[in-house]
Computed example of a mutant assay.
Amino acid sequence: MASAIEKATLRAKMEKYEGKVSHMYLDSKGFVTVGVRHLLKDLASAQKLNFKNGNARASKGEIRADYEAVKKTTKESISLFL
Rank of each mutant, 00 (worst) to 15 (best):
residue 46 A to S: 09
residue 38 H to I: 11
residue 48 K to C: 11
residue 45 S to D: 12
residue 44 A to R: 13
residue 43 L to D: 02
residue 58 A to V: 05
residue 42 D to I: 04
residue 38 H to W: 10
residue 45 S to F: 05
residue 39 L to R: 11
residue 59 S to N: 05
residue 68 E to G: 02
residue 48 K to W: 13
residue 47 Q to M: 14
residue 44 A to F: 10
residue 41 K to S: 15
residue 41 K to T: 13
residue 55 N to D: 14
residue 51 F to Y: 08
residue 66 D to Q: 12
residue 58 A to G: 09
residue 52 K to F: 08
residue 47 Q to N: 12
residue 48 K to P: 09
residue 50 N to P: 15
residue 50 N to C: 15
residue 57 R to H: 14
residue 67 Y to W: 02
residue 61 G to V: 00
residue 61 G to C: 01
residue 50 N to K: 15
residue 41 K to P: 15
residue 39 L to C: 10
residue 57 R to K: 14
residue 56 A to D: 11
residue 48 K to I: 09
residue 62 E to C: 00
residue 48 K to G: 10
residue 68 E to S: 03
residue 50 N to R: 15
residue 68 E to C: 00
residue 55 N to H: 12
residue 44 A to T: 08
residue 44 A to C: 12
residue 39 L to H: 13
residue 56 A to N: 12
residue 39 L to V: 10
residue 54 G to F: 00
residue 41 K to W: 11
residue 54 G to M: 01
residue 50 N to T: 15
residue 41 K to Y: 15
residue 52 K to W: 07
residue 64 R to G: 02
residue 53 N to T: 06
residue 46 A to K: 05
residue 49 L to C: 09
residue 50 N to G: 14
residue 46 A to P: 10
residue 66 D to R: 09
residue 39 L to F: 12
residue 42 D to T: 05
residue 68 E to I: 02
residue 39 L to Q: 09
residue 54 G to N: 03
residue 42 D to Y: 04
residue 45 S to E: 08
residue 47 Q to W: 11
residue 49 L to Y: 07
residue 57 R to T: 15
residue 39 L to M: 13
residue 67 Y to D: 00
residue 46 A to E: 09
residue 38 H to V: 13
residue 47 Q to F: 11
residue 49 L to D: 10
residue 38 H to L: 15
residue 38 H to Y: 13
residue 63 I to M: 03
residue 56 A to V: 11
residue 45 S to A: 11
residue 43 L to G: 02
residue 58 A to L: 08
residue 44 A to M: 09
residue 43 L to K: 03
residue 63 I to P: 04
residue 67 Y to V: 00
residue 49 L to K: 13
residue 43 L to V: 03
residue 54 G to A: 05
residue 50 N to A: 13
residue 45 S to I: 04
residue 40 L to C: 01
residue 55 N to I: 12
residue 66 D to C: 11
residue 51 F to K: 04
residue 51 F to P: 01
residue 58 A to M: 06
residue 57 R to V: 14
residue 58 A to H: 06
residue 57 R to E: 15
residue 51 F to V: 04
residue 58 A to W: 06
residue 51 F to I: 06
residue 56 A to M: 09
residue 63 I to L: 07
residue 64 R to Y: 03
residue 42 D to Q: 05
residue 65 A to T: 02
residue 67 Y to N: 01
residue 42 D to F: 02
residue 67 Y to L: 01
residue 44 A to N: 10
residue 66 D to W: 11
residue 64 R to Q: 07
residue 43 L to P: 03
residue 53 N to P: 07
residue 44 A to D: 12
residue 59 S to V: 04
residue 58 A to S: 11
residue 47 Q to G: 11
residue 49 L to R: 10
residue 41 K to D: 14
residue 51 F to A: 06
residue 68 E to V: 03
residue 57 R to S: 14
residue 60 K to F: 06
residue 54 G to S: 04
residue 38 H to E: 12
residue 42 D to S: 05
residue 47 Q to R: 14
residue 44 A to S: 14
residue 41 K to A: 13
residue 67 Y to S: 00
residue 54 G to K: 00
residue 68 E to K: 02
residue 55 N to R: 15
residue 65 A to D: 02
residue 56 A to C: 12
residue 48 K to V: 11
residue 64 R to C: 04
residue 50 N to W: 14
residue 64 R to A: 02
residue 45 S to H: 07
residue 50 N to M: 13
residue 59 S to D: 05
